[in-house]
Design a protein around this nucleic acid. Sequence first.
DNA 1: TCAAAAGTGTTCAAAATACACCCATGT
DNA 2: ACATGGGTGTATTTTGAACACTTTTGA
Lengths: 247, 247
Amino acid sequence: MAVQNRNFKLNPHVSVDCVIFGFDNVDLKVLLIERETGDANETVDDLMALPGNLILENEDLDEAAQRVLKELTGLSDLYLEQFWTFGNPNRLNKPEDQRWLEAIREIPEARVITVAYYSLVKLEDYSLTPSGFARKASWVKIKDIQNLAFDHNEILNKALEVLKSDLHKIPAGFELMPQKFTLSQLQLLYESILQTELDKRNFRRKILKTGIIKPLKEKQEGVSHKPARYYMFNKKYQGLQDFIDKS
Amino acid sequence: MAVQNRNFKLNPHVSVDCVIFGFDNVDLKVLLIERETGDANETVDDLMALPGNLILENEDLDEAAQRVLKELTGLSDLYLEQFWTFGNPNRLNKPEDQRWLEAIREIPEARVITVAYYSLVKLEDYSLTPSGFARKASWVKIKDIQNLAFDHNEILNKALEVLKSDLHKIPAGFELMPQKFTLSQLQLLYESILQTELDKRNFRRKILKTGIIKPLKEKQEGVSHKPARYYMFNKKYQGLQDFIDKS
DNA sequence: TCAAAAGTGTTCAAAATACACCCATGT
DNA sequence: ACATGGGTGTATTTTGAACACTTTTGA
């Protein structure tokens, strides 16, 4: 029973935060939550935050990230990649953050360092079911993001940097694209991540040569221009971890 | 005064560990310490460990890494790059590690997650002055390393992996080479990090084309073969951080 | 004169870049 | 017929890989 307790005891000093990227064929988005203040009457205009929370005393960091993400947003079984740890001693000290911590934390003044993870998902595959202290969970366009809670702007920026540099190892934005997609959509995704324009012909040649996507019979319908062919990812590639884990 | 106290209070839940690589022109080495047991009489054959310790309550992670490294080994002002965080709940649970923690920690049974840093140094530039719980500090050849304390083998392996992949961004092993060096010495370093053999002519051409090293007038003396020209790094490149920080 | 490492160029294949026109569709 | 985005090939440059012999020195 003592062991059981330890399994459910929060570690007040270490948290995980998750930066989940999604793509809706136009914009790169990130999953944010609105924090529950506990006081239902309060007129809330609180800062949005990345999904994250304290780890459990007996839990590995990777497990914690999975659990926390699921508890707050309903997303489960993502491939989460650790990318950086943030430990500025004042990272929780903004007054509006402190007020919120006082509402939900046992030791609101504790210094907390946070281990950050990122992942990529197909927007269409997941529906958000916020719970816990997440009053709402939503996909927000990267370029619309303003001021986030805690040091979450910094965390997001670092994640974008890492994503950008990982894209060279990951031969495609797999997890971000819908089941079937056109090459132009895929190119748009690359361009939003890399923040550059790419040459259409070179992009197509290169991506097709890797063999990770294959053409479908199907084409676009109802568009007022030449309909584009759909493609899908080759099933023998499982996803992100296949590429990241080969060092 | 309360603030002063907080500045010197250890945070029992978070530590930093440093993987410092050095090169003696033949072998890639790493800096390890021997742990002080506190009992001077004890016949010690304790495991060696990476230099690392708890952070202070009011200290940023990067500062902590600098401080801890200096306290244990005397090395200061290195460029330390964070590379991974280790948080397995059982990472301190080996009996010999527990015994040591009981001797030096206020809460020896606390779960501690550790943020790991790495750096590269010129062996000749630094003399080791162990103190604190480090009875001794020494450079150990990577290939001679056996069983380390805690999860330090895992940390070291990850650091080697990261170093290997960073070497593509860092145009040379700057920090690892002495002031002046021959191209063959530099090639040896690359080969020990990358764990492959490199072509002499291609290596020379590529490294020279980058312009980060420049030839000196001086040559080797007293060697029983054609004396090699010495080179040094171009001063306009400051070091590691110039390359790592450009994403 | 021998042993030992230094130093040096060329060829080939692969990859990256730059670039412009016709096509199929809906309105 | 026109506006819209889809789709295609070639030439050039850059990069990476393979490969063998001569030079200088001390012993």
